[in-house]
């Protein structure tokens, strides 16, 4: 009470001042968009090879898989959760799809279903461990992060798929998977179009469905959500299951892009997806977030990686820059909250 009493005039005051408005803009989605535009501008000036149609489309192709994982990650993070297992799940699902088709000789649609179902299962297990065993989200998915990679290695015996000695009837990957991974619609890479569709669906879920609203409420104030009749455990379970399913789709897309699958593919993408979500203005502590912001975040990370490599900077620097970006953005966000007087949880 008393603190509100003193803060409300202060908040109004601060809301009016220019640096705060800038901070408030820069900390959210607006700032991310600004950074994206700046990055594109800088790289365009620094390298003539950056702003070509071919390279820009290439960036879309490069970020597509992380984009799908980041949409999944956004849905999880708004519940105040985190899914460290998205990349591992993607690898497992991609491998299962590839192994069942190429090595076991299963029909194409069945391979797809197996791949997607395995991701859904991993997500459901994460959700169940969190819901029923009361394991903190970060620990549950950290366990899955390691265990699921292990299963992927077991399934593939550590070899890339298809492996010549194991294929039946001279199979490679399913034709549909290769098409999604490498094909185009007009000038647009098909894989990026799929990511776009996933983003639209994700945005719809978050903004317009009961599950999305429940997720936001659970992340914003768990007790209030519970006392409003929202089943917190079920909401978490569903969100993690959905995350697993989307991760599986990401894994199949990734296999398609690489024209093969292996158990170690997509390593580090879980961190990239988290970075993208946070860069896009979603609150890491839950309760608030947008898919459009996440997509901007994905593009920032993609443009940065692409731009740096075009400039001939070793790829290892990308890992450094990704790490710095995520910390810098959260630090900026905290600064914005301090300046605008927004209360931390």
């Amino acid at each position: 009470m008393a603190e509100l009493d003193a803060q409300s005039p202060a908040q109004e005051a601060r809301a009016a001042s220019v640096p705060v408005r800038v901070a408030s803009f820069a900390g959210g989605r607006g700032g991310a968009l600004l950074i994206l535009v700046l990055l594109v501008a800088v790289f365009s000036v620094l390298s003539p090879n950056f702003a070509t149609d071919r390279n820009l489309l290439n960036i879309l192709r490069q970020v597509a898989v992380v984009g799908v994982l980041a949409v999944a990650q956004t849905l999880v993070i708004v519940t105040a959760g985190i899914d460290l297992s998205v990349a591992a799940t993607a690898a497992l699902s991609g491998c299962l799809m590839a192994v069942s088709y190429a090595h076991w000789g299963w029909p194409e649609p069945v391979a797809w279903v197996l791949g997607l179902a395995s991701g859904l299962l991993v997500g459901a297990i994460n959700g169940a461990v969190i819901r029923y065993l009361r394991v903190p989200d970060i620990i549950a998915t950290l366990g899955a992060f390691s265990a699921v990679r292990g299963v992927a290695l077991l399934v593939t015996e550590g070899l890339p798929v298809p492996t010549f000695a194991k294929v039946v009837e001279g199979r490679t990957l399913p034709e549909s998977v290769n098409t999604v991974g490498a094909g185009s619609i007009g000038p647009l890479p098909l894989i990026a179009v799929v990511t776009g569709l996933v983003a639209v669906v994700g945005a719809f879920i978050l903004a317009r469905t009961k599950l999305g609203r429940a997720a936001l409420a659970v992340g914003g104030n768990r007790e209030a959500a519970h006392a409003s009749g929202i089943d917190v455990g079920r909401t978490k379970f569903r969100v993690y299951a959905l995350s697993g399913l989307l991760a599986a789709l990401g894994g199949i897309l990734l296999a398609g892009r690489l024209s093969s699958a292996n158990a170690l593919m997509g390593e580090g993408m879980e961190l990239q997806s988290i970075a993208a979500v946070v860069v896009g203005g979603t609150n890491l502590f839950g309760g608030q977030g947008t898919i459009s912001g996440t997509i901007i975040g994905v593009l920032i990370i993609g443009v940065l990686a692409n731009g740096l490599s075009i400039m001939g900077i070793p790829e290892f620097w990308q890992r450094v820059s990704n790490g710095l970006i995520i910390v810098a953005v959260v630090a900026l966000d905290q600064l914005r909250r301090r300046l605008t007087g927004e209360r931390l949880r």
């Binding site: 009961k210 609203r213 409420a217 929202i230």
Partner: peptide, 23 residues
């Protein structure tokens, strides 16, 4: 009231929170 209000959610979202099933 901190146990009842979801701060980041809109006023509308808070009002409808217990009625989502019927919306």
């Amino acid at each position: 009231r901190r146990l009842g209000i979801v701060h980041q959610l809109s006023v509308a979202g808070n009002i409808s929170l217990a009625s989502l099933g019927r919306l």
